[in-house]
Nucleic acid binder design. Structure first.
Lengths: 146, 146
DNA sequence: CTTGACCTTCTAGTTACTCGAAGGTCCATC
DNA sequence: GATGGACCTTCGAGTAACTAGAAGGTCAAG
């Protein structure tokens, strides 16, 4: 018989903190594991696989909501696979948007970083000037994409 | 005398929600404005400039902590400008790291998106497989040492 | 038997907002 | 002068995805 992993062992095995594992259990991403006589959580191979899957999907930038959807799909193997594909393609678009945003940002920061002669005073700092509004145009809320 | 803007007018002028403006006041990013007889907030041109600056810096991806630092520097114009430059350069590095991460991510999602023949069932879905751990190697998350 | 590493639950904090409820103010119109 | 609707006020709570801490229980080694 396999002994079952403690939460710390599962944490090490998947590169996840123990607190995060408890959190996942609390919000229903991971099923509650068996308990030992001393009330310790005891995980099996299926838990390891599931948690590894979760971490992998999270590392790809998907929100937990999407993780939940993917787990639901994976648990219902008769559904057509197009839904999974759609999720991935949507996420791909999102990532491409983020990259484009950040590249614009980088260009601007790059420009900014060359404005400072390091010996000046803040009063003459071209960076602060550059950040100050010449044309305060109404922008939609910056820095968040739903 | 200039009349002073209501919070809604300032919101419109800077593309910020009124709630966010109140929030900035609460956490000390914006100074409390004058009040009208009816207890409405009344903002002047300096407020407009300061809020526009805040939004601009935020849009460049800096956290509010950095906004605070930049405001403090801008308010003390005799300090050398190098600190400002350092903040920008640090942020530039950060953005470049994020871009690199996202590009790796995009490559993987791209690969993933071509694994699905749309007519299959989830049971055969190569995406789910691809996301599942064949080798549950301990992935280091930021900040753990053995 | 004691020490220290590990585990338990519960609560609260993080970031940067965002929303809702309950009520007050302002101004134009009837 | 009354009324309606747009705007404002405060306060409190909610969001994502964890993270950290307190107070205490369990376990294996020495």
């Amino acid at each position: 018989m396999k002994p079952g992993l403690s939460i710390g062992a599962l944490a090490k095995a998947t590169g996840t903190k123990a607190e995060t594992i408890r959190y996942y259990e609390q919000i229903g991403i991971l099923p509650p594991p068996a308990r030992t006589a001393g009330n310790y959580r005891s995980y099996d191979g299926e838990h390891v696989r599931r948690l590894a899957f979760v971490r992998r999907v999270r590392a790809l930038g998907f929100p937990l909501e999407t993780v939940r959807a993917l787990l639901a799909l994976a648990d219902q193997p008769d559904r057509p696979c197009g839904e999974v594909d759609a999720l991935v393609v949507e996420q791909l678009r999102e990532v491409e948007r983020k990259i484009a945003d950040l590249q614009r940002l980088r260009a601007e920061l790059d420009r900014l970083a060359h404005q400072c002669r390091n010996d000046g005073r803040v009063a003459d700092c071209r960076i602060i000037e550059a950040l100050s509004p010449q044309d305060p145009a109404p922008n939609p809320t910056p820095g968040d994409r739903p």
